[in-house]
């Protein structure tokens, strides 16, 4: 019988599918970098930051079984988002980088250890950015590599449209149009997903 190389891995992936058909991988792809970045920003060495990441997701994974459908329960992604944000704040507020390994800056840094409000705001911002990056990875598939490059180089890298057109060997008009198409799609999906993950920006709601 033919062996299917992907089978074992996709089995694992499916078993890890969470409530509501949200896959563990989607969740990790959004939140893992968030935790890692925040930990690094707080002075954790890479290995320790990874430790923090694992600690957070271990604690989240233990809570996942607690979700049950119900009128008074939030939708799964929103609920998971809250659980994750609580776990992240908790771990980051409690754990500090190992002072013994640090330099003289460390004690200074500990004095300015971010408080809960700062951490919460930072987390909110980072999680939204995490969702946007995840959305970008998805949306990228909907466009040809050329169209995506036209968007990325002009909008993200800030290269003038005429230069990008020359580099890609396309007309200036097509770069304008490509940039618009990709950004419009990104916005649509970003709004949808940030809402689903309960990360709608307060100023956008009002």
């Amino acid at each position: 019988m033919y062996e299917f190389p992907d089978t074992r891995n996709s089995l694992i992936a499916r078993v890890q599918e969470l409530g509501d058909g949200v896959s563990w991988s989607e969740f990790l792809a959004i939140y893992q970098p968030v935790v890692f970045r925040m930990a690094r920003r707080r002075g954790f060495q890479e290995a320790d930051a990874l430790d923090v990441v694992q600690q957070v997701f271990f604690s989240v994974s233990r809570s996942i079984g607690n979700w049950q459908a119900g009128d008074d329960m939030p939708p799964f992604r929103a609920w998971l988002s809250t659980i994750a944000r609580n776990a992240i704040t908790q771990v980051l507020m409690r754990r500090k980088p190992d002072v013994a390994t640090g330099s003289s800056d460390v004690s200074e840094m500990l004095l300015e250890w971010p408080d809960r409000a700062t951490t919460t705001a930072e987390l909110e911002r980072e999680a939204r950015a995490g969702v946007f990056r995840w959305v970008a990875n998805q949306v990228r598939e909907e466009f040809s590599p050329d169209t995506w490059a036209a968007f990325w180089r002009t909008a993200v890298d800030g290269i003038p449209i005429v230069e990008v057109a020359q580099a890609l060997g396309r007309s200036t008009g097509s770069i304008y149009v490509a940039r618009y198409r990709v950004l419009a799609r990104l916005k649509e999906r970003a709004e949808e997903m940030s809402q689903q993950w309960d990360l709608s920006s307060p100023e956008l709601e009002s």
């Binding site: 992907d6 990790l28 893992q32 990874l50 990441v53 950015a129 946007f132």
Partner: peptide, 25 residues
């Protein structure tokens, strides 16, 4: 906000134990 998010990535994360759970479709 989207553009800034995309411009300020993408520090890749070294392999974490949870990686094996990623969907390898």
């Amino acid at each position: 906000e989207i553009i800034v998010s995309l411009a300020t990535t993408i520090e890749s994360i070294p392999s974490v134990a949870t990686d094996e759970l990623l969907d390898l479709g």
